[in-house]
């Protein structure tokens, strides 16, 4: 009868299995262009963090479209993102998007082959979205003045359809395709303004922003 230990794994292999550590990872995706213009290449940033703050420099990340097709890959840089503990990141070139509309994609982290490593990083993924629009055809200029004074209003945040902008010197501009969009304006202390804008050519829209009425302060304590 063979000694019992003859069926066991070699000591070295058993030790390696026993000591192998698994770290989880997680992903952030930012600077996603939205709206993104179809048929144009863009960039997105993808960062990966290890639960134990390991250096993940050189690791691979991939972008997958809504069908699960891997459309872009990149390697994480050697320096963590400023302001983070250890978020290794890469700028990934975005492939051309063909279809208009809201896209639901994902980024995934592909850890290196773990067979000979003491620390294993588990793969992770993160869903992100963006909106794709037709190439711009026209410029829409929004001129914003305060209703009471006629003075231009800065730092108004605007949406024109999927496009977003902020006013400077009372002016915000958009480059958009033809169509009808809802133009919304927001600034703290002012009433939200919302109007429908039909864009057929270059266009200037004048908006008077009114101050919100002073609300009786209900909190006296």
């Amino acid at each position: 009868m063979a000694p019992r230990h003859s069926n066991a794994l070699p000591e070295e292999a058993a030790l390696a299995t026993y000591e192998r550590l698994e770290h989880t990872t997680s992903i952030a995706v930012w600077d996603v262009p939205s709206p993104l213009v179809i048929q144009r290449r863009s960039n997105v940033k993808v960062g990966v963090s290890c639960s134990e703050k390991c250096c993940l420099a050189g690791g691979s990340v991939a972008i997958l479209d809504e069908t699960g097709l891997r459309v872009a890959t990149a390697h994480l840089g050697s320096v963590g993102l400023a302001g983070t503990k250890a978020l290794y990141w890469a700028e990934v070139e975005f492939p051309e998007v063909i279809a208009e509309g809201l896209h639901n994609w994902s980024a995934e982290y592909l850890p290196p082959d773990a067979s000979l490593r003491a620390v294993v990083h588990r793969p992770s993924s993160f869903r992100f979205t963006f909106r794709a629009v037709r190439p711009p055809e026209h410029r829409v200029t929004v001129r914003i003045v305060e209703e009471q004074t006629g003075n231009p209003v800065d730092d108004v945040e605007l949406r024109l359809g999927a496009h977003r902008a902020r006013s400077a010197n009372g002016i915000a501009t958009f480059e958009v395709a033809a169509g009808t969009f809802e133009l919304c304006l927001w600034k703290i202390g002012h009433n939200v303004a919302s109007i429908s804008v039909e864009v057929k050519g270059n266009l200037t829209v004048d908006v008077e922003l009114s101050k919100a009425p002073a609300i009786e302060e209900p909190y006296w304590m």
């Binding site: 993102l81 302001g83 979205t129 949406r159 939200v192």
Partner: peptide, 21 residues
């Protein structure tokens, strides 16, 4: 992205939560 909050009707969706940290 869509400009609409179908869950809770939050108006004026201006900014994503995406930039680390």
């Amino acid at each position: 992205d869509a400009g609409k909050d179908p869950d809770f009707g939050r108006p004026m969706l201006l900014h994503k939560v995406e930039k680390p940290p």
